[in-house]
Design a protein around this nucleic acid. Structure first.
Lengths: 138, 138
DNA sequence: TTTTTTGTAACTGAATTAGTTACAGGATAG
DNA sequence: CTATCCTGTAACTAATTCAGTTACAAAAAA
């Protein structure tokens, strides 16, 4: 299962986007997510390094670096999940076996098409869309 | 990253499919995968419980329970990965926060569309296709 | 100057993973 | 028949990842 940092990161960004005029401290965000403030600051750090938000040391609040509709869920996913491969492949299959010799090339191709489909769906969604679902529906 | 059992399971099935008249012991399969025979037998057990292969206690060899083209990579994936949710979501976001109150419903929807895209791509591929790539191309 | 806050290091415990040893008991070969 | 081969499974290990936590230096704000 993919870790919950992606979910928390989207939660954080939606919260910031929904309160653009407030400087939300990590303690406040943590109480919305229901976790420890350090967990929030760690994820804020990843989002900052990915260029999605701006923060200031010692000063409460984070600001989105782009408009909510310009922040795709794929960017968020890749900000908090540095491993670019979704599927693990076993190392060093037997090169003297006709299957082992080529299995990794074939698996990589098969897995890549699935991973791309996933990423395309994430790329097609953004923080504004999350906001719309949070506040304008149901 | 999704564990390597999926990759190993596909390797195993392709190997069995490519040698339908041989009874391959787990030691032999293990030497192709380059791991321990118990790792192979564990995965064979999962594939058997999923109805993809048949084995006999004490007797070498596993037989596919269906034709290679009828075994999709999605079935293999689900055989060795019992967790049906791809993305983790943080538990108990704050119900008193307008974002926390609804974030999980929105996240589940967003993640589900991505997961479905992945699963559809896996469902569209099967062991015969893996064999074709292994032996009829490149 | 006192308080608040960030950023980050360091540690913890839980969970997962792949690999390993061990062995009971079924199947097979001589 | 019996010695060997093999499966299925339990149990243990070491490595890794994860979320949560404590601690604290340094920046910002009250």
């Amino acid at each position: 299962m993919i870790n919950s940092r992606v979910a928390v990161a989207i939660h954080i960004l939606a919260l910031i986007a929904s309160r653009p005029h407030d400087d939300l401290p990590s303690d406040y965000i943590a109480s919305s997510v229901n976790t420890n403030p350090v967990v929030i600051r760690r994820i804020l750090g990843m989002l900052r390094k990915a260029g999605l938000i701006r923060t200031s040391v010692g000063k409460a609040g984070a600001a989105l670096a782009k408009e909510p509709f310009q922040i795709s869920l794929l960017e968020v996913y890749q900000a908090v999940e540095k491993d670019s491969e979704l599927f693990a492949v076993h190392e060093n299959p037997n090169p003297h076996c006709p299957v082992g010799k080529r299995i990794n090339a074939v698996l990589n191709e098969a897995f890549h098409s699935a991973q791309s489909a996933l990423e395309n769906k994430l790329a097609a969604q953004n923080i504004q869309g999350i906001m719309d679902h949070l506040f304008n529906e149901g």
